[in-house]
Amino acid sequence: MSKTIIPEGYKSTLGVYDTQTAIGFIKRCFEEALTGSLKLKRVSAPLFVDRNSGLNDDLSGVERPVRFDVPSLETEGEVVHSLAKWKRMALHQYDFRQGNGLYTDMNAIRRDEELDNLHSIYVDQWDWERVIASEWRTEEYLKETVQGLVNAIVETSSRLHTKYPDVNVTIDSNVAFVTSQELEDMYPKLTSKERENAYVKEHPTTFIMKIGGALTSGVPHDGRAPDYDDWELNGDLLFWHEPLNCAMELSSMGIRVDSASLLAQLETANATDRLKYNFHQQIRDNKLPLTIGGGIGQSRMCMLLLGKAHIGEVQVSLWDEETLESCKNKIELL
């Protein structure tokens, strides 16, 4: 069965030409709003890292990175999954101070991704990271940062509507905060994705906190690598996406591990062997700055704000024949 959903009566508000113009407008507007809200500066970032550096993001631990040999260096490179670890090293190397941070364009290939309306093998996102003080490692500070991010999205949506009045997507600035355990308690018979849909439908802007550790059921809400987010101080930002009638995750973010939480989470994940890497040793020895950071999907945001039904309407990727046939004469893939 095809995983592509064609909403009944769906027709894109903007044609391909105007969509391309709108994508550029959204990206410019959001970067302006984001940098002002979170005090970030743009930096250049790698497309790949040394396989043996320990800097690649392991995501949920099962995805295979794209690897290639580099004969002149006698090593292998890996296309990044995200820049979660690299950013923290960069803040240290570039001498960023408390309260300031960086953002960058991140492009990646996730070859094991299952293709549907929200997922492709091509990933584009804004990766950001900010230096914080130890006393800021609190749930309250995390919530304040989430609200700042949402405000930037709302501002971008408002400016988009002014330029394209026919695009009538509305983003709720009121964030509902809920923990993954609270969701399981509310909907014990539903899967984690079903819980998200049930809750976000009633709370169209939602931040689900504390993702990574096992819940009362013994199963985590979702997978999370043990060596960047503190599982007690992280979360996912989701919005209700009307065309697909589902919750859409736009950002994964969190306060990063300190020495104590790194060691505890590596132990829980049976991943203490990662302490062989310089990155992990520097966190263990308190040599890297304390930070908060995350990734924000660029194509996802364009899809959300433009009311698109398929991510292929706002990015160029590869699609299987089943997807191409399902979308034919109904959804125009780039």
Rank of each mutant, 00 (worst) to 15 (best):
K210V: 04
V200M: 04
P165T: 05
H92K: 11
T104K: 01
E184C: 00
Q93I: 06
H203E: 14
W126S: 02
S158N: 15
K201S: 11
M209E: 05
E182N: 02
V154H: 09
N168A: 15
I132C: 02
L91H: 03
D95E: 12
G148V: 08
V146P: 09
V154P: 08
D185A: 13
T156F: 03
G148W: 09
L102Q: 06
M89T: 15
Y94R: 05
N117A: 10
K163D: 08
W126T: 01
V178C: 05
I109V: 11
E194F: 05
Q98Y: 14
K210S: 01
E182M: 01
D112Q: 11
A90V: 09
P165M: 03
Q147V: 14
L115D: 01
V131T: 01
S158A: 14
E144A: 14
M106N: 11
I132Y: 09
N197Q: 06
Q147M: 12
E135P: 04
M209Y: 04
D95R: 10
V123P: 03
D116E: 12
E129F: 12
Y199T: 10
N107S: 11
V167D: 08
T191R: 08
Y141M: 14
R88V: 07
K193R: 15
E182S: 10
V200S: 03
E202N: 14
L91E: 00
M209T: 00
D112T: 10
L91A: 09
A152T: 09
V169C: 07
Y187T: 07
D124G: 12
M186I: 01
M106P: 06
I211V: 07
S158P: 06
G148Y: 07
L142E: 13
G148E: 13
T104Q: 13
E114V: 12
Y141P: 08
A90L: 09
I171D: 00
E140Q: 14
S157Q: 15
F96R: 00
H92N: 13
Q147D: 13
V150Y: 06
Q125K: 05
T191G: 12
Y187N: 10
D116C: 13
T191E: 03
A176V: 02
Y122S: 05
L160Q: 03
Y94W: 04
L142C: 13
P165R: 07
K143D: 12
F207N: 04
L149N: 01
I109M: 04
A90Q: 11
M89C: 10
A90I: 04
T191C: 03
G99A: 10
K193M: 11
I121H: 13
N117E: 09
V167Q: 01
P188A: 06
E184L: 12
P165S: 06
D127T: 03
W126P: 02
P204L: 11
T156V: 04
S120Y: 10
K189C: 03
W128K: 02
A152N: 10
D185W: 00
H92M: 04
K163Q: 15
T162M: 07
Q147R: 15
R88G: 04
A176I: 04
I211K: 02
N117W: 03
H203V: 12
R137A: 08
D172N: 14
R159I: 11
G148F: 07
R137Y: 07
G99P: 09
A133C: 08
D172R: 07
D95H: 14
V146W: 07
Q181Y: 00
Y94V: 04
R110N: 10
A152S: 15
